[in-house]
Design a protein around this nucleic acid. Structure first.
Length: 487
RNA sequence: GGUCCCAUCGUCUAGUGGUUAGGACGCUGGCCUCUCACGCCGGAAACCGGGGUUCAACUCCCCGUGGGACUACCA
């Protein structure tokens, strides 16, 4: 591992959709690699066949791609250090297990799960830390043979000695664990498949990972892994444990807190660069008080020094705020493109909408969008078949003078020889003159009649988008409707 | 219970011995001769407690307290 070219990795286990916490870990690793010009490796930890699925793996890859987190080596991108699925690396773990057995660092354990469970229950009952007490630690060869003859398949446990395990964490500084407090842990399960801590050490070493950046929930695993590194004679990588994302109750963010999967945010209409920006900001900062940041800026300003040590609550309000910023400030064409699926989902025949017209509509309502999926309801006022007077609008139209204003509007619309683009100001001026009404009393009835709502984009924009025919029809409908009857 | 980690406004943070403790979200007042939103200008809002160290502690040390993570033949 060269100091100037770090190699980091993200190693998800495909047991579910990509969690924002994991996405943040991936992002930290990715930014670290990009900042220092290193390499970012993706490894799939699929050793548990019952919890793992190919479908989830595919979805995780898809979510990473959506976030534009790309990997230099991994599935679909061979780099000479593969394979990148642990399932395909079993022969490697076998090899190192043999080394450890020969070195006496590991021993077979014949305890059944039921026996272990009983031991654990006993310890918990006596208010002691549940851990393996070393029953099979010093079995004689004949004892082992007896077990094998009984048909028992052993798991392999790591023999823990006394002493301190110390290491320096890039984010947290000096860390120290007492090995004596740990129980001999399983390195290879009785089905021959390696357990997490063992596979990770072998893989990280073989893949020449220089820095392991992961959540603080792995802090205690690091102690165990360091022991394995030592027994194997491997030089351990540098570790950095970042803080966790928390739910509102300050416990580790999980499903019960609401949306946690990257996919859910995507479906809701959070932009990928927003989620990335937010995740990079959470529990950290960009310096200079900056909050809105491009990917390039995120990478160049990235530093583990800026990573906070304490957990950070996931604040959806702020995520939404950030999404609004990107929607308002982004490129209109690009925004339109990304809005298309949501417009379609709202039931519009996207293919038959005039693109230029659509862009004007989007430009008019983008200020009111928090997520992309909001576009559906926001657009309704521009479609005649979706136009309807809301209760609030009816309220407005019932007010004194309101119908006079609408009638004056209809007249002005009839007389208007201009396209609605230029006509707005003239129409408003003429309605004001005819009725003698101004301000809110003038605008609100017109807004209500023309859009059917009491809130919405600025009226000049609405007039510019709606056709003269639509405007006339809507005014006419209001006048001839139940509200328009002469009193 | 054990081991370990953490601790600045409600939330995310800046701050590395001397600051009127700064910014952002949210909340809130005002302005933008129509609304909502946007934008702009304001406001309320924090150094967990106790001991040290020091001329001086939010900042360093210790102890409490509080919160969290881990305690699997899951990863």
């Amino acid at each position: 591992m060269t100091a100037d070219k770090p190699r980091v990795r993200f190693a998800p286990s495909p047991t579910g959709d990509l969690h924002v916490g994991n996405a943040r870990t991936a992002l930290f690793n990715w930014m670290f690699a990009r900042h220092y010009g290193g390499e970012f490796i993706l490894r799939i930890e699929d050793t548990d066949p019952v919890r793992t699925s190919r479908d989830f793996e595919y979805r995780i890859l898809e979510d990473l791609a959506w976030l534009s987190i790309d990997w230099d080596e991994g599935p679909g991108k061979e780099g000479g250090k593969g394979p990148y699925h642990q399932q395909e690396r079993l022969y490697l773990y076998d090899h190192y297990l043999k080394n450890l057995i020969e070195a006496g660092a590991v021993y077979p354990c014949y305890c059944t799960e039921a026996e272990l469970e009983a031991e654990r229950a006993e310890l918990v009952f006596r208010k002691m830390m549940p851990r393996y007490m070393g029953k099979c630690r010093n079995l004689s060869d004949s004892n082992r043979k007896t077990m094998t003859d009984q048909g028992r398949k052993p798991s392999y446990r790591f023999r823990i000695g006394a002493g301190q395990i110390e290491f320096s964490d890039l984010i947290r500084g000096a860390m120290k664990f007492d090995a004596g407090a740990l129980g001999d842990f399983i390195i290879v399960r009785s089905n021959g498949i390696p357990a997490y801590n063992f596979a990770v050490v072998v893989d990280d070493h073989l893949m020449t990972i220089s820095h392991v950046i992961r959540g603080e929930d792995h802090l205690s695993n690091t102690a165990l892994q360091l022991l394995i590194y030592e027994a194997l004679g491997f030089k351990p990588p540098i570790f950095a444990h970042h803080s966790l994302i928390l739910g509102k109750d300050r416990s580790k963010l999980s499903k019960r807190h609401g949306s946690v999967a990257v996919r859910e945010f995507r479906e809701r209409g959070i932009l990928p660069e927003v989620l990335l920006n937010y995740l990079a900001l959470l529990g950290s900062s960009f310096g200079g008080g900056r909050e809105v940041c491009t990917q390039e800026e995120m990478i160049s300003s990235f530093s583990l020094d800026r990573a906070g040590k304490s957990g950070a609550i996931f604040d959806e309000d702020k995520l939404n705020w950030l999404n609004g910023i990107y929607i308002r400030q982004g490129d209109l064409e690009r925004l339109t493109e990304r809005l298309l699926p949501y417009i379609r989902a709202a039931g519009h025949d996207v293919d038959n909408l005039d693109r230029a017209w659509l862009e004007r509509v989007i430009d008019a309502v983008r200020g009111d969008l928090v997520t992309l999926s909001d576009i559906g309801t926001q657009m309704d006022i521009f479609f005649d078949d979706r136009y309807a007077l809301s209760g609030e609008a009816q309220q407005v139209l019932r007010e004194e003078q309101a119908m006079n204003v609408v009638r004056a509007l209809r007249e002005s619309l009839e007389q208007s020889p201009f396209s609605t683009d230029e006509a707005y100001h003239q129409i408003m001026a003429s309605v004001a003159k005819k009725t003698g009404v101004k301000g809110k009393k003038l605008f609100m009835p017109i807004r209500a009649a023309v859009t059917g709502k009491v809130r919405g984009p600025e009226l000049d924009k609405v007039f510019a988008i709606l056709s003269l025919e639509s405007l006339r029809h809507r005014a006419e409908d209001v006048i001839s409707g139940p509200l328009g009857g002469r009193r």
